[in-house]
Amino acid sequence: MTQEQSSVDKPGQIHMVDLFAGPGGLDVAAHWLGMAVEGVEWDANACATRDKAGLATKQADVRDHKPADFEKATVLAGGPPCQTYTVAGGGAGRRALEQVLRFVKLMAAGEDVKESLAGLDDDRTGLVLEPLRWALEAFHNGKPYEAIVLEQVPAVLPVWHAVREALEGIGYKADCGILHTEMFGVPQTRRRAILIARRDRKPALPAPTHQRYRKGEPADVSDEQLLLPWETMGRAVKRESPYVVISNYGTGGDPKLRGRRTSDEPAATVTGKVSRNRLVNREDLELQRFTLPEAGRLQTFPLDYPWSGKDVSQQIGNAIPPRLAAHVLAAAMGWELDEKALDEAVNGEWSVTKDSSPLAARK
């Protein structure tokens, strides 16, 4: 399925191609920033959501395409599947980490590793190298991307360091590291490995705007950087009375000991099993569990975001929070993000065709 861009291109508008685009975390942020974006996504469920949201999509396997198929794009972005690298997954990617790092060096040296990747225990593991393939091919075709933005689970950070070295070998300047979502106004504690690269200047990962969440410490603890308090579930998901979320996962090494967060705290990491989290009141009486739109709010998708298809909980859990993505994209582009305007976008109605001012001042 290919969907044409819903809005007419504006003069000077920057175009981005988003690999492994999912339901649209990066794409939503790109639209908030006034960028045009087309996503490549093979999953029919995620594509159903993207279609309802009005996001331009090519339903396809990223491995079957190349930069020349997206000629307008000057920005490359992507969040490859994390299942083989995440702690909650089977661990095939973590076990193959040394092989993957070796493949990065071979690719940087000009070797084709396609057949070698096919020999990995789980073929999803090698997908983390697809953005590098696209970047290298665009460079060798004489049309390198001006900026590159990649995100994954923390276990992939060594791969991003290796990719950074490969990109620097063809003229990019790059930065990579771990970002905490609650430090960018997301009402959830989640860590992401981020890489940003540019050809014209040295970029830097975005600076935090909010405090780091630490269990047992109030949100208004004084901070020498004068950061904002972390965002709470209660402000993001408004209900009539306070509530407690009981995790579907164990905590402290005990699978029977379920983690608890109150509505006055950020949510724990939102996963594809978010619908299994129980909600109770202060007397431990059962409450309605998070609805899908509410779960999306914890990821900072607009409340009216049109989730569609099957496995919506998984779609939500797999996505990068759009609010974090906006900070990362703005940093990669060298733009100054308007935090107040970002608040309004996150809390407002979703429209891919809405004609509003971008959230970032372009330097």
Rank of each mutant, 00 (worst) to 15 (best):
residue 1 M to E: 07
residue 2 T to E: 12
residue 5 Q to T: 13
residue 5 Q to P: 11
residue 6 S to K: 12
residue 10 K to A: 15
residue 10 K to I: 08
residue 12 G to Q: 07
residue 26 L to S: 08
residue 32 W to M: 09
residue 35 M to G: 05
residue 44 A to N: 06
residue 45 N to A: 04
residue 45 N to C: 02
residue 46 A to Y: 00
residue 54 G to D: 01
residue 69 D to T: 08
residue 71 E to A: 14
residue 75 V to P: 01
residue 82 C to T: 07
residue 90 G to V: 05
residue 97 L to M: 14
residue 97 L to A: 01
residue 101 L to G: 00
residue 103 F to E: 00
residue 105 K to R: 15
residue 114 K to G: 13
residue 116 S to V: 06
residue 119 G to E: 15
residue 130 E to F: 12
residue 136 L to D: 00
residue 140 H to K: 13
residue 141 N to Y: 00
residue 143 K to C: 02
residue 145 Y to N: 01
residue 148 I to R: 04
residue 149 V to S: 01
residue 157 L to I: 07
residue 165 E to A: 15
residue 171 G to C: 09
residue 176 C to R: 02
residue 176 C to G: 05
residue 179 L to C: 10
residue 181 T to R: 01
residue 184 F to S: 03
residue 187 P to Y: 14
residue 192 R to Y: 03
residue 195 L to M: 12
residue 212 R to I: 03
residue 213 Y to Q: 03
residue 214 R to G: 02
residue 223 D to A: 09
residue 224 E to T: 14
residue 226 L to G: 14
residue 226 L to F: 14
residue 233 M to Q: 10
residue 233 M to V: 04
residue 234 G to W: 01
residue 235 R to G: 12
residue 237 V to S: 00
residue 237 V to E: 03
residue 241 S to Q: 12
residue 259 G to R: 00
residue 260 R to T: 11
residue 263 S to P: 06
residue 263 S to I: 00
residue 278 R to P: 01
residue 288 Q to C: 06
residue 291 T to S: 15
residue 302 P to W: 10
residue 303 L to W: 07
residue 303 L to A: 15
residue 304 D to Q: 04
residue 306 P to R: 05
residue 309 G to S: 04
residue 315 Q to D: 06
residue 321 P to T: 11
residue 326 A to G: 03
residue 333 M to G: 02
residue 333 M to W: 03
residue 334 G to C: 03
residue 334 G to Q: 02
residue 342 L to Q: 13
residue 342 L to C: 14
residue 344 E to P: 06
residue 345 A to E: 11
